[in-house]
Nucleic acid binder design. Structure first.
Length: 260
DNA sequence: ATGCCTTCTAGCAGAAGA
């Protein structure tokens, strides 16, 4: 089974690139972020025609997440627990049936947090603590689980072209990285880093100043695996070619393949 | 030192993104 994540930066603007990529990569499950539309405006029929079931958690103009799956989607939960008054659509979780079992999958759009310090950064750190608490409770189920999405976290200096430029950014501040390590150390493996030590592996390049052409990027989209999923990991990759196509998102898909 | 680019809504400019 192949599970992918992609921050599409508006689903309506990405219909053609998505169709092309789905045909080429043939993922079984896709976690989408920044769909930037309400549930009723999601182009559900297009994906159903391509053989996918669709679960969305949309929002007008901003944010919005979704899960596509060729296998049935069960136990859909929208929103991350603990957000008193948090109306951002940034989290959707579901259980996907696989041969002889199931895998729990979440599509995550973690807050950007800039400018830092400030209320947006406070919201980011609070959201990360909610994610940590929820991940801990889910890990107690001891089942295959993939928490995939745009974490808006650069985990290490090896995950950014020019670390010095990012030292005061909410994506790279020590407190951000420390919180991400806290989540990782619960027992979640980064699929890309489980399979490669290469530098220069990025998932986002700014639209401005020719960032992609210079490979001036950052690695912020991650698939985090429970040990029961990591044990079945056979490959992982980043589809950077989508960034060179027509009307690209500023993020590219990241995927992991499993023997289940 | 600043904008660079793309998206959204609203309404022909401003916010947000990372």
């Amino acid at each position: 089974m192949r599970i992918a994540t992609w921050n599409v930066n508006s689903i309506k603007q990405r219909v053609e690139p998505m169709q092309q990529w789905l045909k080429e990569r043939e993922p079984d499950v896709v976690c989408l972020q920044e769909i930037k539309c309400v549930d009723d405006a999601f182009p559900r029929g297009m994906f159903e025609d391509m053989g996918y079931n669709v679960a969305t958690h949309g929002q007008k103009a901003y944010n919005g997440v979704a899960i596509l799956s060729k296998k049935p989607i069960d136990e859909i939960e929208r929103g991350l627990p603990g957000g008193d008054g948090d109306d951002h659509a940034r989290y959707i979780e579901a259980v996907i049936s696989v041969d002889g079992g199931a895998v729990r999958v979440a599509s995550i759009y973690l807050p950007n947090g800039n400018p830092a310090p400030g209320p947006k950064y406070d919201y980011k750190l609070a959201w990360m603590e909610r994610l940590r608490a929820h991940a801990m409770s889910r890990l107690a189920l001891e089942e295959p689980m993939v928490l995939a999405g745009d974490y808006n976290v650069i985990p290490t200096p090896d995950d950014v072209h020019d670390p010095a430029v990012w030292v005061n950014d909410a994506l790279f501040l020590p407190a951000t990285r420390a919180k991400f390590r806290e989540i990782s150390f619960l027992g979640l493996a980064d699929a890309v880093r489980a399979t490669s030590d290469d530098k220069g592996l990025y998932t986002f390049w700014d639209y401005q100043a020719g960032a992609f052409q210079k490979n001036n990027g950052i690695r912020i989209d991650h698939l985090m695996l429970s040990s029961q999923a990591a044990d079945k990991l056979t490959a992982a990759g980043i589809d950077r070619a989508t960034r060179a196509g027509e009307k690209p998102s500023d993020h590219v898909p990241v995927w992991a393949e499993f023997s289940f």
